[in-house]
Design a protein around this nucleic acid. Structure first.
Length: 701
DNA sequence: TGGCAGTCAATATG
DNA sequence: CATATTGACTGCCA
């Protein structure tokens, strides 16, 4: 019934503000291609789906905002674009643009002539549109890289990237051209075919070879399209993402004969213009060894020059990430900045940068996150934690209470936890029990499995970079556990952040609150579906109850959390509710120890300031009488089904009609109003949930 | 004033 | 006991 209503009325609803739903597909919805899945229906009416680019270190959860968000997908196929825009003048331009996109050549390759557009290089979103200033797509990342090399460590398990490679489905691929391009790529940059096949396609190299040799025409392909899609998407990724997927470093990538593929961070020598305060260092080390009961013998055995880790400016952003503390803004958090004589520090020195093998991607990520914390508030208007007396807007850089400047605190820690987080994430992934390889959206699990499988396979072959990786990981992991403490302690010392008072819990609380409430960079979008799935998974494996997660992390009630997690709305259909998902994300990407500490039942965190019903509280204050909530109406089954039936006929009855209904059903008018309001909303929400991108084509051979 | 987003939180369900 | 559902509310917006 409702379906019927929907079809009949949708047209009117689109254009009249009185119709319901006024915004049936969401104001920001774009029609989808009719060919989102594996089997495009026709070439008409299907604008090209843009390619999302994820920021580094995003765990597959972040997308660049783009012109045609996947969330615009409808499940059942083609949205009627003309109807959608129907005389709607505001949208004429948009329509124009989309038409243009439809006609766009889906594959646009790098173009040498346009390398001058490359300033922003891989930071630039790789969305594709034929109109507008679309720099990335007309740029040549290799050229850019040659001009301006950076060195990366692989920072992400490939699993994340696998997902990324499948997220966007081009409508059509010239497979021949694609293969040609890839062949060139492989040849020019000495990419190991085996590696590529494994990491990008998760296939045997033979499959890749076959493909490259005899590309099948796109329209003759069915399941085999996935391989081409992955290649296509990989080719269109920013350089560092590609490298991350291949687990390559730029140096390897460049020549295949470069000095060192992987540089051991412990063995990496300091640039000679960096000076260590050896006294302080020794002291810290001693302290650290003491704290962690590290025997001198053990320490000595691994004795190596310690890799410094100043968070250098990189070419993506010539702004230092941290400026306000002298604790060190390191990603790697090994040594506080205070140990360095900063006058020796030359931020523009490439040599120096090349020492920084750690997670340049992470730096970028943090820069993005930090760079716009001031003006990203509008994105999340309705935030918790703003009580009347002590306003704390988590989305604004503002000091927390209790003397310490938590701005600095949370900001710098935020950067410092990132590396840890990556490693911890790797750990988690590897520890995650195998199992349900559902073809659904449980990407994390799925990817995890494929990753692990990859390792197993490769370990029998001597070329394995992954197993080396794993060792490295274990190695780093141990390394990273300690340094955080150094930093934290150093921070406490230098900032007057003493845990001496009895309020250490609330300080820690404020600290975590700062982390959880940290805003996302502008234009960053979350894949709420994957996020929520991941979190659900995490909660399950860790036995985290919803209620504790709700209060500690989400700062919402259990019921709300349950619904948010299980029925996430697509990012771009969210309004003020984004903040909650940001909190989820912030929690999810914290290092394991912090993540778990937050939800530790044994710790008695201070009860967070309940944002809730501020208005009611205000009313209470004004009248002195506690505002009472109307007790829940228990609808009789008869009443409920009557309401349901009426709703299906007419989801939005006028006040008169509702009064009439109320009288007939012997119900409170308010209850009837609520019923319609709630049902409308929930019906709508359901529709929105369905717009999550289908992701069920990963099974194929 | 009416509608919707985001929630709370009582209560049903598992 | 944990999670899911859903009536009631507040804040915003037009």
């Amino acid at each position: 019934m409702y379906q019927n209503w929907r079809e009949e009325d949708s047209k009117a609803a689109m254009t009249s503000s009185g119709g319901y739903p006024r915004d049936y597909f969401g104001t920001d919805a774009l029609w989808d291609t009719g060919s989102f899945g594996m089997a495009p229906t026709s070439s008409s009416g299907t604008p090209y789906v843009s390619i999302p680019v994820q920021y580094p270190n995003n765990n597959g959860l972040l997308y660049q905002s783009q012109n045609a968000p996947w969330s615009a997908q409808t499940n059942d196929g083609i949205m009627d674009k003309d109807n959608y825009f129907n005389e709607n003048l505001e949208n004429v331009v948009e329509k124009e643009r989309c038409n243009e996109m439809e006609n766009a050549n889906p594959v646009v390759y790098a173009d040498d002539e346009n390398t001058n557009l490359l300033e922003e290089k891989s930071l630039f979103p790789a969305y594709q549109s034929t109109s507008g200033s679309d720099k990335f797509w007309y740029s040549n990342p290799y050229k850019a890289w040659k001009d301006n090399p950076i060195t990366f460590k692989p920072t992400e398990p490939m699993g994340n990237n696998m997902h990324q490679l499948e997220t966007l489905i081009p409508k059509n691929i010239d497979t021949e051209e694609l293969c040609e391009k890839l062949t060139r790529e492989i040849h020019n940059y000495n990419i190991c075919c085996q590696n590529f096949a494994k990491k990008v396609l998760n296939k045997h190299p033979r499959v890749l070879r076959k493909m490259l040799k005899n590309p099948k025409p796109w329209n003759e392909l069915r399941t085999g399209r996935l391989n081409y899609i992955r290649i296509h998407n990989w080719l269109n990724l920013p350089l560092e993402k590609r490298l991350g997927i291949l687990d390559m470093e730029l140096m390897e990538w460049k020549t295949g004969t470069s000095e060192t593929g992987n540089v051991d961070p412990l063995n990496a020598s300091l640039p000679d213009y960096v000076k260590l305060d050896t006294n302080q260092l020794t002291e810290l080390v001693a302290q650290e060894m003491n704290t962690h009961k590290i025997s001198s013998r053990k320490f000595a055995k691994n004795r190596q020059p310690i890799q410094e880790s100043r968070n250098a400016n990189d070419e993506y952003n010539h702004q230092p990430l941290q400026t306000s503390t002298n604790i060190g803004s390191s990603d790697d958090l090994v040594i506080p900045d205070s140990l360095f004589d900063s006058s020796y520090y030359d931020t523009n020195d490439y040599q120096y940068e090349n020492q920084l093998l750690h997670s340049s991607t992470i730096r970028m990520y943090n820069q993005q996150r930090n760079s716009d914390t001031e003006n990203s508030n509008d994105q999340y208007s309705n935030q918790p934690h703003s009580s009347n007396d002590q306003p704390i807007d988590p989305y604004r850089q503002r000091s927390f209470q209790n003397g310490a400047d938590f701005n600095v605190n949370s900001e710098r820690r935020q950067s410092s936890h990132s590396v840890d987080s990556v490693f911890n994430k790797m750990a988690r992934k590897r520890q995650t029990p195998p199992g349900r390889r559902s073809p659904s959206l449980d990407d994390v699990t799925y990817l995890d499995n494929s990753y692990r499988k990859g390792n197993d396979d490769e370990s029998s072959q001597s070329t394995s970079s992954s197993s080396a990786d794993f060792k490295a990981f274990e190695y780093y992991k141990g390394l990273l556990a300690a340094p955080r403490k150094i930093i934290d302690d150093a921070y406490r010392r230098s900032s007057g952040f003493h845990a001496s008072s009895s309020s250490s819990d609330s300080e820690a609380f404020a600290y975590y609150e700062g982390l959880l409430a940290a805003p996302l960079a502008n234009d960053t979008a979350l894949d709420t579906k994957i996020l929520c799935d991941s979190i659900l998974q995490e909660m399950k494996t860790r036995y985290i109850s919803q209620s504790i997660f709700a209060t500690r992390v989400a700062n919402r009630s259990q019921g709300t959390l349950s619904e948010l997690l299980r029925k996430p709305k697509p990012w771009d259909s969210l309004k003020s509710g984004r903040g909650t998902y940001v909190r989820f994300f912030n929690w999810y990407q914290l290092p394991e120890n912090q993540r778990m500490e937050i939800v530790d039942k044994k710790i008695n965190w201070p009860v967070p300031e309940k944002k809730e019903v501020a208005g009611r509280r205000a009313t209470e204050a004004a009248t002195g009488v506690p505002a009472k909530k109307k007790p829940r109406t228990e609808f009789h089954p008869v009443q409920r089904s009557a309401l349901q039936t009426i709703f299906e006929e007419n989801p939005k009855p006028s006040a008169d009609v509702m009064a009439h209904i109320a009288r007939n059903l012997k119900l409170d008018i308010g209850a009837v109003e609520n019923f319609f309001q709630n049902t409308r909303k929930r019906t709508n929400d359901q529709e929105k949930c369905k717009r999550h991108p289908p992701n069920d084509y990963q099974e194929e051979n």
